[in-house]
């Protein structure tokens, strides 16, 4: 029983780490002012690509994940090109439509190889089974959780390292006011294309890790609800820092789902909270103002009041004007 519970904890932690990657990809898009309901498509494409690479071409996992990421980035960049000048609702609907296009395309994709255990490969709506890299290489669920967490920490480190840089500031500026950002000499179009590609790669990485954890895929896994959840996690957790989406995931999967708190009412509670946050705290729990306050307090605590005043976080050099809240 305790072994089963431990397997449950490992499975849940893996799910949270994988979902965090998808939420981080939505977070990146939201940073540049794009509400994308299509990130699940890149998650799915990454999952299928990485699965094909290990199950059919017998490539090593890291190489398969990298190829999945490259495909996710390329597809996301290709989608970003024609949608570059769409905004708001039009962009959201375009990404939703792309997500469904990708899912339906995967439903029609048949490509299988014969093996002693039967055909292996995507079989349309029946899915893609026997992605057995972990089993064939004796990777335990615990070791795979460690790999998944490493991937998440790496992505998080890159995003957090980028936050105080010129690129990070330009991303937030683009999200706040793209026209003003353009007048500052920052190429908003190039920035949005770059962000879309990065977000696609992160979602695809999550997908590749998911495919190998579950060993099977089917197009139904990548329906719009997955993308909506990813946006919800980022909006709930907050857009002030890359930690925000993780807070959203931990709240929903780690608290509501794992503890079965509110049981069948979980989705109602989660949806209601997102709606309330959109009204009262539109940039989530960890918004820019709260993150600034926290960093100020931390700097004061760690460096002392005088040093904290000179800390870049408090100098105003990196401060970004926020839109007035409703």
């Amino acid at each position: 029983m305790s072994e089963a519970l431990s397997a449950h904890a490992i499975g849940l932690s893996s799910d949270m780490a994988i979902m965090s990657l998808l939420a981080l990809s939505s977070y990146l898009m939201l940073l540049v002012g794009r509400v994308s309901f299509g990130q699940q498509a890149f998650f799915g494409l990454g999952a299928y690509a990485a699965g094909v690479m290990t199950a059919m071409f017998h490539l090593p996992l890291l190489l398969a994940l990298s190829i999945g990421m490259a495909i996710g980035a390329l597809c996301s960049w290709l989608l970003a090109l024609p949608t570059l000048h769409l905004s708001g609702l039009h962009y959201a609907v375009a990404t939703l439509a792309f997500g469904e296009m990708a899912r339906i395309a995967l439903s029609g994709w048949h490509w299988q190889l014969s093996t002693p255990d039967g055909p292996v490969g995507p079989a349309g709506i029946d899915g893609f089974r026997d992605i057995r890299w972990l089993l064939e290489n004796d990777v335990t669920p615990g070791a795979y959780l460690a790999l998944t967490l490493t991937a998440l920490v790496l992505v998080l480190a890159v995003l957090m390292r980028a936050e105080p840089t010129r690129l990070g500031i330009a991303l937030r500026m683009t999200g706040q006011d793209p026209i003003l950002t353009n007048t500052q000499g920052i190429g908003v179009a190039a920035l949005r294309l770059f962000t879309a590609a990065a977000a696609g790669a992160i979602a695809a990485l999550g997908g590749g890790l998911y495919a190998h954890r579950t060993t099977y895929l089917e197009p139904a896994l990548f329906d719009p609800m997955l993308g909506v959840h990813a946006v919800g996690y980022a909006l709930l957790g907050g857009l002030g820092t890359a930690i925000g989406p993780l807070v959203g995931v931990i709240f929903d999967l780690g608290l509501l789902e794992a503890t079965q708190l509110f049981a069948g009412w979980r989705m109602v509670i989660f949806g209601g909270l997102v709606a309330l946050f959109l009204r009262w705290r539109p940039r989530g729990l960890l918004d820019e103002a709260l993150v600034h306050q926290i960093s100020q307090t931390l700097a004061g605590f760690l460096l002392g009041p005088s040093a904290a005043a000179a800390h870049p976080a408090n100098s105003g050099a990196n401060a970004i004007p926020l839109k007035e809240r409703p």
Partner: peptide
């Protein structure tokens, strides 16, 4: 053999976590 049963809902991946049982 040690066998553990688990289940997910394909329509809601990672959203319904059933406790695995031996």
């Amino acid at each position: 053999a040690q066998i553990t049963l688990g289940a997910i809902m394909p329509s809601m991946p990672m959203a319904h976590t059933i406790k695995p049982m031996k």
